[in-house]
Design a protein around this nucleic acid. Structure first.
Lengths: 142, 142
DNA sequence: ATCAAGTAATTTGATTATCAAACAATGTGG
DNA sequence: CCACATTGTTTGATAATCAAATTACTTGAT
């Protein structure tokens, strides 16, 4: 096993651990906000990216549109999102956050920010900037 | 809004995006492996950390022990894990991967490694090492 | 212009995931 | 020894999920 291979492995496992920890944190935090993980995920994506079509949203969530229809039904009922039929394509439905949905997003985002601050507390400013560049690069390539 | 605050915000959103993308990737990939997301998560944690008690496992997954009992029932039925009552504490139950479970872990880990390679393809060696150090630090502080 | 094939969302039926609360078995600290 | 805490399971209810069928609409080829 080459040294490079080992480094890739180490990075891989560090990423997996990071993901698992975030996932566990998210799951725990979400209950206190009175919503399910799936719901917060949806709100999170709409909050970060703005309104989008069902199909696009389902892809970003990694679920089928059938599942998403049920999910959005619940979110509409909870007053967090609204449906709007698309003007370009009358098959499509745009989903967007309501005022209340944006509020929930902001609240959740604030919790994330606190966590981020705790995680990067020992980073100096230059390191923080480099971390941001790394993350941006990771995100851009998948 | 100070410059530092903005940097924290940017890092925060980059982390959230990273998490969402991983989550979506995981959800999509998992189906092709013939298991659910929850099941793979469990296998992933046991594979990375070795055998552990129900409570500990539930904590790492961010779910209740009640949910985990059902989950482990299914995994046992699928031949992926086994239960073993603890010697120290007779209330406790240790869960560990079977041969088949380890195989599934290895297979899934390989998919992660491929993704990691794609994500870090544009990183040179020094950057890779720094990325690993950053990830290790992030993981150690939460 | 028409029609076949493709795409978007919903519905349906079945399974899985989840929680809170109640319970049984075991450990712990006075 | 006993009150209290902890571990795992069970139970009953709800939410999340998929695949497949359906409906409505778009697109492309002829």
């Amino acid at each position: 096993m080459s040294a490079e291979y080992q480094l890739d492995q180490d990075i891989n496992h560090a990423i997996i651990e990071f993901y698992e920890r975030l996932s566990s944190w998210e799951q725990s935090v979400v209950r206190d906000q009175g919503a399910s993980l799936a719901q917060i995920h949806t709100v999170e994506i709409l909050g970060a990216n703005g309104a989008m079509r069902m199909k696009e949203l389902a892809d970003k969530l990694g679920i089928t549109t059938g599942t998403l229809t049920v999910q959005v039904d619940r979110l509409v009922k909870a007053g967090l999102v609204v449906r709007q039929s698309s003007v370009n394509d009358r098959r499509s439905v745009e989903v967007q956050l309501t005022e209340k949905g944006q509020q929930m997003f902001a609240e959740h985002d604030q919790l994330h920010l606190q966590l981020t601050r705790e995680m990067t507390a020992v980073f100096d400013d230059a390191e923080r900037q480099q971390l941001l560049r790394f993350l941006a690069r990771l995100n851009s390539t998948f």
